[in-house]
Amino acid sequence: MPRAIRGVLIECEPAIKSIIVHLDSANNDIIIEDLDESHLVVKENMVHLLKQKLEDRLKETYRPEEPLADSE
């Protein structure tokens, strides 16, 4: 008998996926099923938190390269 599990499918780049896997490794409370290198199923109630955490993580690693300050 097949099982149907409620969740949210996430499609993203492999790099982003590895961050999500890393975030999940702390408590194993996000991912339901790791599908392939660009797809995951996560718990519905964790999506919002996940987006936030991802944003924070990206801020650490990504310094937006702004043009030089204005000197008009």
């Binding site: 409620r6 949210v8 996430i10 499609e11 993203c12 982003i16 099923e33």
Partner: peptide, 20 residues
């Protein structure tokens, strides 16, 4: 738009490949 999210259902644990 780093990730695209789609709420829904994952089907797994099929008894036979035919059923899947």
């Amino acid at each position: 738009e780093r990730m695209r999210t789609t709420p829904g259902f994952l089907f797994k644990d099929f008894d036979t490949y035919d059923e899947y």
